[in-house]
Computed example of a mutant assay.
Amino acid sequence: MLRALLATAVLGLPPLLTAPLAEAAPITELSTSPQQVLAAASTLLKAVQIGDAQAVYDALAPSVQQGTSPERVQARLGERGAIRSTRITHLHSGVDDSTVEAVLVDENGSHPLTMVLDGGGKLLAWEWHGEESSLERSAIGFVEDVSAGRWLRARERMVLSLQEDLPPESMQEQWNGLQESTGPFEGVRGAVVASEGGDQQLVLVTTDFGRLTDNIFVIFDRQGRISGVDFPVVEP
């Protein structure tokens, strides 16, 4: 599954890492309770606030750790300046990951932050909110096209090989099957770039369904064309 290929995460804007995807251990189903996810997110935010690079590094998913080091994390934290306070505003538990929305306050005001934690409560990706990148806009547009049944428009965003492997009827079947498990599509909450600049670029699109909020993984090639899509899989 494409969810097993996540190898790096964006730690702020500009990103700390821009490495291509590589092999990684499979992401397991959600094994932590909402309380444990909140505790893990709170610990991470505290580490960011006090500038504890080792604690931030320890909170990263193993696949993300492969692409960075405590020293690089420390350098990135130093670029952000002093953080006065943090607070968590929302938690959305998905099938195999959780999305945490938070706010960090510094001398320039409040800054919304989105974090995606894996099934074990480790950080897969985070991003400070600002202007959407072209990859984010394209990924969100793709999900919105699929949700509205605009199959031809959605397919125009794909590389030719994916269009050949995934005809419109298959796309519709997969999307309808997803909603049988998650409840009906309600809207896109946002997107996080988890890897960019390589042959495989990854965007996580946080999506609200009737029964849960989860992330749809959209893979882009170097030219910004969609080369793969991975929907959450709910085990029967």
Rank of each mutant, 00 (worst) to 15 (best):
D208C: 09
H111T: 15
L212M: 14
A47S: 09
D145N: 14
G198P: 04
A24S: 12
V203T: 04
A191D: 07
M171F: 02
A47E: 05
L124W: 06
E144C: 02
R225S: 12
I50E: 13
S138K: 11
D221Q: 11
D214W: 02
L38I: 01
G198A: 03
D208T: 11
L166F: 02
D145T: 11
T213M: 08
S42N: 06
M171D: 04
P167F: 13
E180F: 04
A191T: 09
E169L: 04
V234Y: 14
Q223D: 07
S227K: 04
D208V: 10
G210K: 11
R222E: 12
F217N: 00
F217E: 04
L13H: 05
T89H: 10
L204R: 00
T207N: 10
A25F: 05
F220N: 09
P34C: 10
R211E: 15
S85L: 07
V233S: 07
Q65D: 03
D221C: 06
R225F: 14
A41L: 00
L13V: 10
I83N: 05
D214M: 02
R72T: 01
R225A: 11
T99V: 12
F231V: 05
P167S: 12
A24L: 05
R3H: 03
A22N: 03
E132F: 05
S110G: 15
T207W: 12
D118N: 15
G120W: 04
I88S: 03
L160H: 00
V64W: 08
P62W: 13
W151G: 06
D106N: 15
H129I: 10
F142N: 02
S170L: 12
K122F: 13
H111Y: 15
Q35S: 02
V105R: 15
D58E: 14
T8S: 15
D118W: 10
S63P: 11
F220C: 05
W128R: 14
A53F: 13
V73S: 09
S181T: 12
L2V: 02
L113V: 15
T32C: 08
V234H: 13
F209Y: 15
L60F: 15
P15S: 07
S227L: 04
M171T: 04
H129G: 03
G183L: 09
V146K: 03
R137C: 10
L5F: 06
V159C: 10
T32P: 01
T114M: 06
G177K: 07
R211W: 15
V95H: 12
P20H: 07
G12S: 01
W151K: 01
V229W: 01
Q65A: 08
T32L: 07
